[in-house]
Simulated assay, not measured.
Amino acid sequence: MDLEQLCRDHGAADVTIARELAEIDEQALPSRFDAAIVDLMLGAVSTLDFAAGLRNEGVPFVFASGYSDPDELRSSFPDIRLLTKPYSGEDLIVAIAAACGRVAPA
């Protein structure tokens, strides 16, 4: 699935794809991102601390990953949706819309 195109098709004006956490300036999170789709691992690095930073800054997000430990996520992120791969584009759009407090486009 072309995640960038999927996001643009549903109204995202700017999409940033990061393959490593080092590519993201965490100081600029609230001003740079309206929402995020977070894989649990980037490279061989856990993104849980990054996700906690998103939550602390009020940036809505969902987890979308092939790696999962649902028990750990439920205890640390009880209100954050986890989409496990393979997931559909529609499921992703519905989840991110819900995280943003919106209804997915019809």
Rank of each mutant, 00 (worst) to 15 (best):
D69L: 08
R19H: 14
E4R: 09
G66C: 04
V38M: 15
I80H: 03
R8C: 07
V38L: 10
L82W: 00
D25N: 15
L83I: 02
D9N: 13
E90K: 12
V103C: 03
E4P: 02
I17G: 01
E4F: 01
V15N: 05
L29P: 10
A13W: 07
D91G: 05
D49P: 06
L54G: 07
D34A: 14
R55F: 05
E90H: 07
I37C: 12
L21P: 07
D49Q: 11
L6E: 03
G11W: 04
A52N: 07
L42I: 13
L82E: 03
E72A: 14
L42Q: 12
R74D: 09
S65C: 14
L29E: 10
A13M: 07
V62F: 05
R74T: 08
V94N: 03
L42K: 13
L21C: 14
R55L: 06
E72G: 04
I80Y: 00
M41R: 15
L21N: 09
A44T: 15
G11I: 10
F50P: 05
F61T: 12
S68Q: 10
M1E: 04
L6M: 09
A13K: 12
S68H: 14
P86G: 00
Y67T: 13
R19V: 11
V38D: 14
E26R: 06
